[in-house]
């Protein structure tokens, strides 16, 4: 169980909801549950193999999951997970 904060650019795919409660014990499970609840998000978050896209960063609280156990990082009911689009350009 975790609450996932949706970044502004993706809220059009969640009916403008900024936060979604999800089931799952890990970041991966929570993200998959999120995309099951809101299928239009799937293309933006997961690649063809079901992995979290490289341009999408995930934070558990203030910690980047890359410095934790990545997608296998455990989440609790009180966890706040933020999806962060990796913004870049030229």
């Amino acid at each position: 169980m975790a609450k996932i904060i949706i970044p502004t650019p993706l809220r059009k795919f969640t009916g403008n909801q900024a936060a979604i409660s999800t089931n799952g014990n890990t970041i991966r499970e929570a993200i998959v549950d999120l995309t099951n609840q809101h299928p239009d998000l799937k293309n933006h978050l997961l690649d063809a193999t079901g992995q979290i896209r490289s341009f999408v960063r995930i934070f558990l609280g203030d910690e980047d999951i890359l410095s934790l156990q990545k997608e296998e990082t455990m989440v609790a009911e009180s966890s706040i997970v933020s999806i962060v689009p990796a913004i870049a350009g030229g």
């Binding site: 970044p7 960063r57 934070f59 203030d62 980047d64 933020s82 962060v84 689009p85 990796a86 913004i87 870049a88 350009g89 030229g90």
Partner: peptide, 9 residues
Amino acid sequence: FEIDPRDYL
């Protein structure tokens, strides 16, 4: 350019 994900948060 690139923005630090923490700045985005």
